[in-house]
Nucleic acid binder design. Structure first.
Length: 99
DNA sequence: CTTCTGACCAGTG
DNA sequence: TCACTGGCCAGAA
């Protein structure tokens, strides 16, 4: 599978995460044909300025935010759309998409 | 060509 | 639950 098409598959999936829900790098990778969780993280890190993808709805399999530069902003964006975090910064199972 | 570095993850103790 | 480990694989140097 060509690198570009893999990227497009990743973006297409991220695009479909419902508001107020989240999914993980690993789940997205599994939905593509050959991508690995690391590639998904890399794809989001390199998003071009001006994109409109809900990158903030992608979290780690531990259901915590991955450690990266925009984590703080990501946390606020999710809070703004109603996502609740428990005391240890984890998101409820029910919010992980797809069901 | 080799080495290193990640917005990762599942297994193990 | 947490810390650590080995595996992962495309880029950058």
């Amino acid at each position: 599978m060509p690198r570009i098409e893999l990227l497009e598959q990743i973006y297409t999936i991220v695009e479909q995460i419902p508001v107020g829900r989240v999914t993980t790098y690993g789940r997205i990778a599994a939905m593509t044909e050959g991508a690995t969780p690391r590639m998904v993280g890399s794809a989001l890190r390199n998003l071009p300025a001006g994109h409109q993808l809900p990158w903030h709805r992608v979290i780690a399999a531990s259901r915590k935010l991955a450690d990266h530069g925009g984590a703080e902003r990501q946390h606020q964006k999710l809070r703004d759309e109603g996502v609740v975090f428990d005391r240890k910064g984890r998101v409820a199972f029910d919010l992980v998409w797809p069901d």
